[in-house]
Computed example of a mutant assay.
Amino acid sequence: MSTPTTAARTPLRVRPVLMYHSISASTAPDPHRLRVHPDRLDRHLRRLRRLGLRGVGLTELLRAQERGEAGRLVALTFDDGYTDFLEHAAPLLQRHGMTATLYVVAGRMDGANDWDSGPRLPIMGADQVRAVAAAGHEVGSHTMTHARLAGADPATLTAEVTGSRRVLQDVLQAEVAGFCYPYGAYDTAAADAVAAAGYDNGCVIGDYSPGDRFTVPRCYVSPQDTAAHLVARMARHQLLQRGR
């Protein structure tokens, strides 16, 4: 495994990165608090527009930041690759002139979220993943099986990190630049594996240390978050980064 460059592992100050999962009007049990109603997402995107902000994928945000052009951008990310992204989130993003990163569990395409105890949610197949990319959204990897990578052995890291990138690049016939650690669980070996596999970046959840290019922190968005809550989360994100 190659060693990540010093620049890549230097702490960054990144614009807010928002984390969603399922976008659905379902009233089924939601024990893990993953489901945001489409109307609520619509209100979130409207508030971003009123603030003069535009949602983009995480890789686009990081590259704009390198050019000094990220001042009015926020990153929008959606984990797991649920089919409801195409049904509900993608039309809303298009309406508001925004894009996002969708992190797909590559080994569960055409399957479901069998890694948790909540309701079974369908995951996109290859054609749907290609449709997401064709609509202008970034597709990133969320491992092969939604494995917890902190403490994983080298063989598991290779299968989950490198293997998932290979699968998704074969589906898309394009580079897969972004990676997302399931459960936000990572350690130095996992972050090094993501960098060595050729990804441009990796993201976690609310962990601001080290906060480098392969451990970019994100703001979790809950099912009950109002537009005002969203603004507060973004403000807290900025304060936490200034305090590092």
Rank of each mutant, 00 (worst) to 15 (best):
Y186K: 04
R244A: 14
T10M: 05
N113Y: 09
D200H: 14
T156V: 13
A131E: 07
G202H: 08
M144D: 06
Q238A: 13
T188N: 00
D207A: 13
L62W: 02
R95C: 04
V17H: 01
A28P: 09
R40W: 07
V74F: 00
Y208K: 01
P223C: 06
C219N: 12
E138P: 01
R130L: 05
S117L: 11
Q238G: 05
Q238P: 00
R43E: 07
R165W: 06
A147G: 05
D187N: 10
S141Q: 03
V176D: 10
V139R: 13
M98A: 15
R213V: 10
H88L: 01
T162S: 15
S209I: 00
E160D: 00
D80L: 04
W115G: 08
G202D: 01
D127E: 13
L61D: 05
L12W: 15
G68F: 04
R9T: 14
P122F: 02
D84R: 06
R165C: 09
R54L: 10
T156W: 00
A100D: 08
V17A: 03
Y20N: 05
T188I: 05
E69Q: 15
A159R: 12
H142F: 13
G107Y: 03
D187S: 08
G243K: 07
V161D: 11
T59Q: 11
R120I: 10
L86Y: 07
I205C: 15
D170F: 08
D116Y: 13
H37Y: 06
A90P: 06
A197D: 14
M98H: 12
A174D: 09
M19Q: 05
D225W: 15
D39A: 14
M124E: 07
R72D: 14
L239I: 14
D225C: 10
R67I: 04
V161E: 14
R67E: 15
A147D: 01
C180K: 01
A8P: 04
G52T: 00
L34K: 07
N113T: 02
D212A: 10
L93R: 07
Q238M: 09
R15I: 02
R95N: 02
